[in-house]
Write a protein that binds this DNA or RNA. Sequence first.
DNA 1: GTACGGCCCTGTTAGC
DNA 2: TGCTAACAGGGCCGTA
Length: 267
Amino acid sequence: MPELPEVETVRRQLAPRLTGRTVVAGSHESAKFTPGQSAVGHRFGEPSRRGKYLLLPTENGRELVVHLGMTGKLSFRPGEPDGTDPYLRAWWELDNDETLEFVDVRRFGRLRFVTAGDYRDIPTLHNAGPEPWDPTLTPRRFHQLLGASKRVLKTKLLSQRPIAGVGNIYADEALWLAGINPTVTRLGLERAGALLDALREVLEQGIELGGTTLRDYRNVDGDTGGNQHALHAYGRAGLPCERCGETMRSAVLDARTTTWCPQCQRR
DNA sequence: GTACGGCCCTGTTAGC
DNA sequence: TGCTAACAGGGCCGTA
């Protein structure tokens, strides 16, 4: 499930191979996608990223916005697209005889071809909070952003509003690292600062290790990430906490499995 | 505007 | 062995 570190890994691999290339043919036929052919004739600039969204700008002020969803993968193939792959959802033939393919088994991925920077049709992106390393994201501002909603903390983090790019895995990891219970609804300034530090730390580690592969995630080269071997909370329900030895607990919060240590993440 | 529940989607796994 | 049901979950939408 691609979160910020996985999307950033994909962006870094995509950049040298996509920048400067022109789309000569393409298709993405799905109600969830901008109608096919729209990117044909456009030349890609340098890819960027906003939260979990990949932003692929073209030189004439347009932008292909890609969300990988749960199982979306981008990869290059020599020559024409693989017409036999039942999960091929979109493809763009480039002017160097390579094809960029978007394969997505569970169809949670989304594509939009928009005027650059105009995300009104993509609500989560339009309303996304600051990037984790935004210099204006101080502990005080993060504390204010968290205070804008009365929902439980884990739900706020997944909403992308207080901070962009955090999903289920990295939220659980950061909350464990900061020793904060996922079900609290309010955080003091100091603890908000500790959570911000923890979020930055787990996301940085995720990027350094090339993302987390639990089942589906693969980077542009088809390789798995390495961060799944460095998890302390996510997926460890029933196992001893690595910090205090207490049995890790899990519950469904906002339809997402949440794992925490009842001892060192007390309410 | 915010909160909340339901839905999308399909491979894998658990249970019978 | 084979079938069925539960599970995984980010984002969006309708309703309150």
